[in-house]
Design a protein around this nucleic acid. Sequence first.
DNA 1: GTCGCCAGTTTTGTGTACAATCTTGCGCAC
DNA 2: GTGCGCAAGATTGTACACAAAACTGGCGAC
Lengths: 228, 228
Amino acid sequence: MDAIEIKQWTSDSVAADLERAIHEHRLPPATKLGEDELGDAYGISRTTVRAALHALSHRRLVELKRNRGAFVAQPSVREAREVFEARSLLEPRTARSAAERMTDIELARLRENIEDEHAALDASEDGRALFLSGQFHLEIARIADQSTIEAFISELISRSSLIIALYWRRRAALCETQAHHALLDAFERRDGDAAEQLMKSHLLDLVASLDLRNVAQPATSLREALQR
Amino acid sequence: MDAIEIKQWTSDSVAADLERAIHEHRLPPATKLGEDELGDAYGISRTTVRAALHALSHRRLVELKRNRGAFVAQPSVREAREVFEARSLLEPRTARSAAERMTDIELARLRENIEDEHAALDASEDGRALFLSGQFHLEIARIADQSTIEAFISELISRSSLIIALYWRRRAALCETQAHHALLDAFERRDGDAAEQLMKSHLLDLVASLDLRNVAQPATSLREALQR
DNA sequence: GTCGCCAGTTTTGTGTACAATCTTGCGCAC
DNA sequence: GTGCGCAAGATTGTACACAAAACTGGCGAC
């Protein structure tokens, strides 16, 4: 079947694999992540799975319930607002720094990223497109050369993916890549002011495209909905 | 001796205990944290110790070296700059929010915090004073009611403590509480603009009071210094 | 008929044992 | 005398086994 048996999984690589699966919406919010189940799937012991699950819980991608198990997180409306509030504090300034110190090679990588995203969208690979969209933002933080801020943004992007899974209202599928194109233009001009401003409004647009009225609760799995 | 035997330590509480010890400089940078050693100290197995150590490594307070062990982290000069860069992006705006929504009760708690810090300084309990100083910043984030940003700031504050341990140059011992007093005044007036501005310059002052010339490397333990 | 209690089953939490890896010290060759 | 290599010791990484807790189902009493 798969080449799973070939690779030697470590707790880190398992965590990365799960994070990507969550990011691509292959593991939707509230999915139960049983330790035995995962151990069998990856061919590793529960000990290693536990380490990976704990790592993801520190990034708020997985919720650990004592004696209940691990579940893909379901960010609340409040948490959703907070995540984008944090992003709006970090990313615009980071985009400015990136614009001011970007090399042609880095610019080319960003351009490539956008093209891949387009290709994924054309192939209706929504999950992959969403992941690449996140990679675009992450790449900008990487170019800004601030690894600490980059780590925060990385976490926020992954969490944003969960938020999108829960609260996205189909509307603007294109505006996403549109905004990224605009940012790329600013980067090409090494225009820090424009990049900061564009990132700011891009994030605002993202929040606007979500349905964050507390009326519609996460619509989670059965009992979870009633425990609230 | 101690009441350690009474308490039932969990991985979380052990992590919190270690974090506080690090924050108060009872565990200086580069201290080796052996698993057996810690297990004996807390009366728990290595399994639980490992979970705590991993948690702290996610917050960049301890560095895990494969097959080598866990050590209290030694932030590089570069990392030090990054941490304060991140703080300067997050904390000023957070202070503004806090100022605008602060209640009298919260104000009183902050005042109390400053008094405790004064008392600790008078008693020459430097570690405790440093911890309380961090708590002041953390309390502000809590008042701003943004738990996501609060979590980031909490991590940055703890890491700042390590940075101070490594790079502090004795100079302004008082300016710290001075700045906190000024912030408190702004909070009393619910003056968001002033709070944001004061926090911004407070953080700049902090960086200025560090010796971040790359000349003087961490001055770590023997071999560590040479591996760089 | 409904509510409450109790036991069975499943899943996580913790402790222990073994394997892999790295460090350290000695010995041998050049 | 110096440098390399190998073996012994120590420490972490992983797997396994047991204990604790929570959910599920059924039985019995009111």
